[in-house]
Nucleic acid binder design. Structure first.
Length: 1119
RNA sequence: GCUCAAGUGGCGGAAUUGGUAGACGCGCUGGAUUCAAAAUCCAGUUCUUUCGAGAGUGUGGGUUCGAUUCCCACCUUGAGUACCA
C-alpha cells in the first residue's frame, strides 16, 4: 500500500473533529497544562507559510504533553477587530463584520488543513458581542478603581470616596493626575456632584483627559506610542502630529514598577524583557528645584505649586494654630455662595481662608511677603482682609461680623488686565528638574528648558524676547521627524534670566534648547557640561563655562560620562567622594534643606485608549452634563451600532457620529434613537471605540470559560487553569499587547478576579520565516546619447527589432560582461545589425520572478514564466541559457506579494501533505531564529515520511512482527526516545526531526519490523506528524486515537556500551581513533595507546611531555 | 549613539556540562534502474595537497593538555530603541 497523504490526512482531520478528540475538560485527575498561541488577526490575504510556524511548535508541545499525561488546554480564536477590515469597508461599503466573517472562514479552513489539535469548542472572537461584553465590563472595573500606593494595588473607588469624606485628599497616597488640587473633608462635602466627578476622574484607572495625542490625519485617528515607528504610523507610514484632544486613557503608569518587578518572575526571552524594561524606562535620581532670579518677570497666569510644597501643605492643614482653629470653627459652617476653604492655594501663595465665589481672602497678618501678596491677589480681583492672632482669640464674633460685612459689601477691585501686571522679583518662579546625577550638582553651569516649557514666556527678559520667540517659532515649524533626523545641529537661545544654584547660591544662565524634550521628566534640565555630552556640546557651542568637578579627568575634548571609579572634586561637601557616596549624600542634603528629594522617574506614559474608528469595541459610556457615566454591567453588551458610512462625520466626529441609534435611555436602560435626546432621561453615547489591544489584553482568560454569560470566566475555571503555561508568538508585540495584557492581568488580580498576576509563565518568540526571492535579469537596449547619427527614425527601427532578452545568472559577473553576452547573442541571432552594434547600449534590470516557477536547482520554467499572468509583456522574450537551463538569482527577503515569494501552505499541503509541512517548518532551524523558506528542501522530510511508512509494510502489505527486538533495534529506539524527549522539553524541534531521520535510516538498515519498536516509534513521531501516526496506529490494531497513548519510557540500560571508539589527539588535534573497552583504567589505556604503531608514527621518535587520559572521553598526547 | 542577538561548507543548520567540528537535510558529482523521464536505490561531497598529510568555526589576542563553546579587544550583520537629563 502506497503512502497517500491526501486520503490519510482528510480521514484523520474528520475523525478528530467528529470525536472532539482535543476537547479539554475543566476538571481532571491529570495535571493541567495550558498551551497558547497569539491569536491571529484574520486578514484578507490569508495565511502564508510563515504564519503557522508558531502554531506548529505549540501544537507539537500540546500533543507531547497529552502523551505525557497532562490535561491540555490548547485553544484558538481570532483578534477580529481592527483597521484593515475597516479600511476595506470604507473602500467597498461592505460591513466589516461580513468581511471579517469571510476571512475567519478562510483562516479556519487553512488551519484545519494543517491538522492542529485545537479545542475549537472554545473559540473566541474579539468582535463578538458576547465576548466584548466582557471587554466593556473590564473597562467599567477600571473606571471604578484607583491605585492606592500605600497598599500598592488597585482598590475600589468607593474606598477613595470614603477617605475624601473623612479627611479630604491630603492623606491620600495615590497615582493620579499631576495637577490635583488639595481639598479637605469639608471641601469635599461642599463640592457639587459634578465637581466630585471631576476630582474622582483624576484618580480613576481609566480616565478622560485632555492629552497631547499622536494624531494621524491620514488614518483619521489617534495612535498609541507603540503604534508609531520612526515618527510615522506603523500602518501605512503616514505622518503623525501632536494634538490636544479629550481622550480616554489607561493609568498604566501606576503599574510601572510592578510591571518591571514581574519580569523577574516569568520565563520570557531576555530580548523581550529588555525591550519592556527599556520601554518602562525607570531611572533613579533626584528632583531638584532651582529658584529663578530675574530682574523683571511678567506674571500672566497661575503658578502651580511644586510637589514638595504640596506635601508640606498636608502637614500645615493638620497642624493649625489655636487662632486658626477658632476662626475656622466660625467660618466652616458657612454654606453655598459664602462657603470658605482653608489653606487654599492661589498662584504660588497659600492663603489661610478664601471664599472663592465672593473673591474674598481672609488672612492672618504678619506674613513677610504681605505687600507682594496684596498686589498679586488684587491683580487677580480678590479682596483681602487681615486679622492678627490676638484679634481672633479675643473677639472672634467681631472678626466674623467684619468678614460678613466684606462679603455683603465687597470693595470694588478691578481685575487688572493680566498682560500689564508686572510683579517684581518675588522668587515665585521655580524650575523643577529631574536628574540621574545629583552628585554632579556643583558642575551645573546653566539650565536648559524645552522651548515649549511654560516658564519660558514668563522669565524671558525684554532684551532677549525677540531672539527667544524667533527660536521657538523656528523649532515649532520643524516636524518631529526633522528634529529626530537632525540631532547633530546644536541650537538654542538665552532667555536672559538666571537661576540660583541651590547649594552655592551662584547665578546660572537659563537657556532654551530643543535637545530638551517637553514631554520627558519636567521639560527642563540642569546642565552639567563636564558630565553629559549633550550639555558639553551645547556649552562649547554657546561659550558657556565648563567647570570640571571630576578629580584627575581631562575634559578638554569631551564630557566624562563614566560613573564607576569617578571621584568628585570642586564640589564643597561632595569633594573627594566616590560617585555612589556623593549621590547619596547630595540627595540627603537636598532633602534636609528642602529643595530636592530622591525620585524614580519612568518613561512609560499612560496609554491613550480612544480610537476614532468604527470597527472596535464601543465604550459602555454615556455623557450627562459633560461628565462620563458608566452603563450598569447588567445592560451589557452595548452593541456596535449600524452606520451608513464608516468615515468620520463632516464635522470631524468619529464614525459612530454617523449612527442614528446611538443614545442611552437611562429610564428604559437601552440604546435608543438620537431623536430622543430631547428627553431629559436620554443621553448621548460615547463616539470613540476602544483600541485593538483592548480585546487581546484578556482573551487568554476567556478561553478558560468561553461561553459563560454570568461572568467573564467562572471562579472555578480560573482557579483550575490559572495561567498560560506556554505562550508562543511574535516578538513584535513586546511593547504593545504583551505589556498591556500584563497590566490588565495585574489589575484583575488586584481586584481578586483572577488568581495570578502574570498571565503567562513561559513565552517563546518564534522567528520570522523569510522568503527566498528569485530574480531574472532583463536586458534593456537603448541608443547612446549624442551618437551624432543622422537618422533617428532608422535607430528606432534598430531598437524595434531587438526583443526583450533575459540572461541566465551565471553567464555574467559584471554589468560589462552582461552587455557583451547580450550583444553577442543579438548579433548571432541577427536581431542586431553589426553596423549599429557600437551605437546600442545594454543595461541590466533584476526582476522578481514567481518562486513557484523555479525548481530546486534554481532553474526557471521558461514557458511558465512567459505565460504567467503577471508577465504578459514577456510572451516573446528571448532567454540566454546556460547548459540548457535558465538559472535565477536568489535573495532572502521578507515574504510579500510584491516580491512574488509568498508560499501558501495550502499548496504545500496539497502537494506534500500537512505532515510534511509540519516537519519541514520545524526542520528549517531553531524556532526562535529567523530563517529563509525554500520549498525545494521539503523533499527531504517528504521522503522521510515515505521511508517511515515502508518500515511497517512488506511490499504492499502491512506487516509487523511480534518477535523480540534485537539489541541494536532497542538501542536505536531508546536513543531516539531520549533525544526527542530532551529536544521537545528544550523546544529544539529542528534537531528531533533529524533524530527521526536517523532512527528511520538505522531501522531501515536493520530491516526492523518489530511491533515492540515500531509501536513506540509511531507515538514518538505523532506530535510532529500526527496524521501518518494515527493511520499507522490504527493499522497496528488500536481503536483509540494515538493522542491517548502514553509517551514511551526511556530505559538507559539499552544504551550501555562495553567499548568506546576513543579519539586519539596530539596537542588537541584528533589524528585517529582506537576502539578500547570501557572498563580499562587510565594507566592501562595509556599503555595501550603509547604502544600503538600509529602513535609511534605520529610522535616521530619524540617523547611526549604529558598524556591526558579522560576515560570514556578522549586521549590527548602533548608533545 | 545606546541595548540586545548572531557570525560554522554552495545553502538551511548540528555539536545541550570545554573533549572526534560539519550530524540531518537541500543542492551538486558519479553510478544502478529505465526506451526515456519522474520516482527510487547506492557511493562521494569543508578547503589545500607533492596523496604522506596539513589547515580550518568573522579577525586578533588570552586562559587550558584540549576552545565553535570561557575571557578581552576589534570587524560585520540583524533586531529593538533613540536628544530619556
Amino acid at each position: 500500500m502506497q503512502y497517500n497523504h491526501l486520503d490519510i490526512e482528510k480521514k484523520w482531520q474528520k475523525f478528530w473533529a467528529e470525536n472532539q478528540t482535543f476537547k479539554a475538560s475543566n476538571q481532571s485527575d491529570k495535571p493541567k497544562y495550558y498551551v497558547l498561541d497569539m491569536f491571529p488577526y484574520p486578514s484578507g490575504a490569508g495565511l502564508h507559510v510563515g504564519h503557522p510556524l508558531g502554531y506548529i511548535a505549540s501544537d507539537i508541545y500540546a500533543r507531547y504533553k497529552r502523551h505525557k499525561g497532562f490535561n491540555v488546554l490548547h485553544p484558538q480564536g481570532y483578534d477580529s477587530f481592527g483597521l484593515p477590515a475597516e479600511q476595506y469597508a470604507i473602500q467597498t461599503g461592505q460591513h466589516p463584520a461580513k468581511t471579517t466573517e469571510e476571512n475567519v472562514a478562510t483562516y479556519r479552513k487553512q488551519l484545519d488543513n494543517i491538522g492542529f489539535s485545537f479545542d475549537w469548542s472554545r473559540e473566541v472572537r474579539t468582535s463578538d458581542p458576547e465576548y466584548y461584553k466582557w471587554t466593556q465590563w473590564i473597562f467599567i472595573q477600571l473606571f471604578n478603581s484607583w491605585y492606592n500606593k500605600e497598599s500598592d494595588k488597585a482598590e475600589d473607588i468607593s474606598s477613595l470616596e470614603k477617605i475624601f469624606k473623612k479627611d479630604g485628599n491630603a492623606t491620600v497616597n495615590a497615582v493620579c493626575d499631576e495637577e490635583t488640587q488639595y481639598f479637605s473633608a469639608d471641601d469635599w462635602k461642599a463640592f457639587s456632584s459634578t465637581e466630585k466627578e471631576e476630582i474622582l476622574l483624576q484618580y480613576r484607572l481609566t480616565f478622560l483627559s485632555d492629552t497631547e495625542v499622536n494624531w494621524c490625519p491620514a488614518l483619521g485617528t489617534v495612535l498609541a506610542n507603540d503604534e508609531i515607528v520612526n515618527g510615522v504610523s506603523e500602518r501605512g507610514s503616514h505622518p503623525v502630529i501632536r494634538k490636544k484632544m479629550t481622550q480616554w486613557s489607561m493609568r498604566i503608569s501606576a503599574y510601572a514598577q510592578r510591571l518591571l518587578d514581574g519580569l523577574e518572575t516569568i520565563d520570557w526571552p531576555q530580548p523581550l524583557k529588555d525591550s519592556q524594561t527599556n520601554w518602562i524606562g525607570r531611572s533613579q535620581g533626584a528632583m531638584v528645584t532651582f529658584k529663578v532670579d530675574s530682574g523683571a518677570i511678567k506674571s500672566n497666569s497661575e503658578i502651580k505649586l511644586s510637589y514638595k510644597e504640596l506635601e508640606a501643605l498636608k502637614e500645615l492643614r493638620q497642624n493649625l494654630s489655636k487662632a486658626e482653629i477658632t476662626l475656622w470653627d466660625e467660618l466652616k459652617n458657612k454654606k453655598g455662595a459664602t462657603k470658605f476653604r482653608k489653606k487654599y492655594t492661589i498662584g504660588t501663595f497659600l492663603v489661610d481662608y478664601v471664599c472663592v465665589s465672593k473673591n474674598l481672602i481672609v488672612e492672618f497678618s504678619g506674613k513677610e511677603d504681605e505687600a507682594a501678596r496684596t498686589e498679586f491677589f488684587e491683580s487677580k480681583g480678590f479682596n483681602i482682609i487681615r486679622f492678627t492672632n490676638e484679634e481672633v482669640l479675643q473677639n472672634v464674633v467681631k472678626v466674623v461680623s467684619e468678614i460678613n460685612f466684606a462679603i455683603q459689601f465687597p470693595k470694588v477691585t478691578e481685575k487688572k488686565s493680566e498682560e500689564k501686571v508686572v510683579v517684581k522679583d518675588y522668587n515665585q518662579y521655580k524650575i523643577d528638574v529631574f536628574t540621574t546625577r545629583p552628585d554632579t550638582i556643583y558642575g551645573v553651569s546653566f539650565m536648559t528648558l524645552a522651548p515649549e516649557h511654560e516658564l519660558v514666556a514668563k522669565i524671558t527678559t525684554d532684551a532677549q524676547k525677540a531672539e527667544v520667540e524667533a527660536y521657538i517659532t523656528a523649532t515649532s515649524k520643524r516636524s518631529e521627524r526633522d528634529r529626530m533626523a537632525d540631532v547633530k545641529t546644536i541650537s538654542g537661545a538665552f532667555t536672559g534670566a538666571f537661576a540660583i544654584h541651590p547649594f552655592s547660591g551662584e547665578k546660572i544662565q537659563i537657556w532654551i534648547g530643543d535637545y530638551v524634550l517637553a514631554n520627558y521628566g519636567t521639560g527642563a534640565v540642569m546642565a552639567v557640561p563636564c558630565g553629559d555630552q549633550r550639555d558639553y556640546d551645547f556649552a562649547k557651542h554657546f561659550n558657556i563655562p565648563i567647570p570640571n568637578i571630576f578629580e584627575g579627568v581631562d575634559i578638554s575634548e569631551e564630557a566624562h560620562t563614566g560613573k564607576e571609579g569617578t571621584i568628585i572634586a570642586n564640589s564643597d561637601f561632595l569633594s573627594g567622594l566616590k560617585y555612589k557616596k556623593a549621590l547619596k549624600l547630595a540627595i540627603f542634603e537636598m532633602e534636609k534643606r528642602g529643595f530636592g528629594y530622591g525620585k524614580i522617574n519612568y518613561r512609560l506614559r499612560d496609554a491613550v485608549f480612544s480610537r476614532q474608528r468604527y470597527w472596535g469595541e464601543p465604550f459602555p459610556v454615556y455623557y450627562k452634563d459633560g461628565m462620563p457615566q458608566m452603563i450598569d454591567a447588567e445592560h451589557l453588551p452595548i452593541v456596535l451600532p449600524e452606520v451608513e458610512k464608516y468615515l468620520p462625520t463632516e464635522d470631524g466626529k468619529p464614525p459612530l457620529g454617523n449612527a442614528t441609534e446611538w443614545a442611552w435611555d437611562t429610564r428604559n436602560k437601552k440604546v435608543v434613537s438620537n431623536d430622543k435626546l430631547k428627553n431629559k432621561t436620554v443621553y448621548p453615547l460615547e463616539l470613540n471605540t476602544m483600541p485593538g489591544w483592548a480585546g487581546s489584553s484578556w482573551y487568554f482568560n476567556r478561553y478558560m470559560d468561553p461561553t459563560n454569560s454570568e461572568a467573564f470566566a467562572s471562579k472555578e475555571n480560573l482557579e483550575y487553569w490559572r495561567e498560560v503555561d506556554l505562550y508562543i508568538g511574535g516578538s513584535e508585540h513586546a511593547t504593545g499587547h504583551l505589556l498591556y495584557a500584563r497590566f490588565w492581568q495585574k489589575f484583575l488580580f488586584d481586584k481578586g478576579i483572577v488568581p495570578v498576576d502574570e498571565f503567562a509563565k513561559k513565552l517563546i518568540n518564534q522567528g520570522m520565516i523569510l522568503g527566498t526571492s528569485a530574480f531574472v535579469y532583463k536586458a534593456t537596449a537603448f541608443v547612446k546619447n549624442g551618437c551624432g547619427c543622422s537618422d533617428e527614425k532608422s535607430m528606432d527601427d534598430v531598437l524595434e527589432k531587438i526583443p526583450t532578452v533575459f540572461v541566465s545568472k551565471n553567464l555574467f559577473s559584471s554589468d560589462d560582461e552582461f552587455e557583451t553576452v547580450v550583444k553577442n547573442y543579438l548579433l548571432d541571432n541577427k536581431f542586431l545589425d553589426p553596423n549599429f552594434a557600437d551605437l546600442v547600449m545594454i543595461t541590466k534590470t533584476a526582476i522578481h520572478a514567481d518562486v513557484a516557477l523555479v525548481n530546486a536547482s534554481d532553474e526557471l520554467d521558461v514557458d511558465g514564466f512567459k505565460n504567467h499572468p503577471l508577465n504578459g509583456d514577456y510572451k516573446n522574450a528571448e532567454f540566454i541559457l546556460e547548459e540548457k537551463a535558465y538559472k535565477v538569482g536568489r535573495e532572502v527577503e521578507k515574504m510579500s506579494k510584491s516580491k512574488y515569494n509568498v508560499v501558501n501552505p495550502d499548496d504545500i499541503v496539497e502537494n506534500y501533505g500537512a505532515d510534511s509541512l509540519r516537519l519541514f517548518e520545524m526542520f528549517l532551524g531553531p524556532l526562535e531564529q529567523a530563517k529563509p523558506w525554500k520549498t525545494s528542501g521539503i523533499s527531504g522530510v517528504s521522503s522521510f515520511l515515505k521511508k517511515l511508512w515502508k518500515l511497517y509494510f512488506n511490499d504492499d502489505n502491512f506487516e509487523v512482527s511480534d518477535a523480540e527486538p534485537t539489541k541494536d533495534e532497542l538501542k536505536t529506539l531508546h536513543k531516539t526516545i531520549k533525544k526527542v524527549e530532551d529536544d521537545i522539553e528544550n523546544f529544539s524541534f529542528n534537531t528531533s526531526v533529524s533524530t527521526f531521520m536517523i532512527a528511520v535510516n538505522e531501522l531501515t538498515a536493520l530491516k526492523c519490523n518489530k511491533r515492540a519498536i515500531l509501536e513506540p516509534l509511531a507515538i514518538l513521531v505523532s506530535p510532529y506528524a500526527p496524521h501518518i501516526a494515527e493511520e499507522l496506529w490504527s493499522l497496528l490494531g488500536h481503536k483509540e486515537s494515538i493522542s491517548t497513548a502514553n509517551f514511551p519510557v526511556f530505559e538507559a540500560s539499552h544504551l550501555v556500551e562495553s567499548a568506546k571508539n576513543y579519539p586519539i589527539s596530539f596537542n588537541g588535534k584528533m589524528r585517529f581513533t582506537l576502539e578500547l573497552p570501557l572498563d580499562l583504567s587510565k594507566e592501562e589505556i595509556e599503555k595501550i595507546v603509547m604502544e600503538n604503531e600509529k602513535t609511534i608514527a605520529q610522535l616521530e621518535g619524540k617523547t611526549p611531555k604529558k598524556v591526558i587520559v579522560v576515560p570514556g572521553k578522549i586521549i590527548n598526547i602533548v608533545g
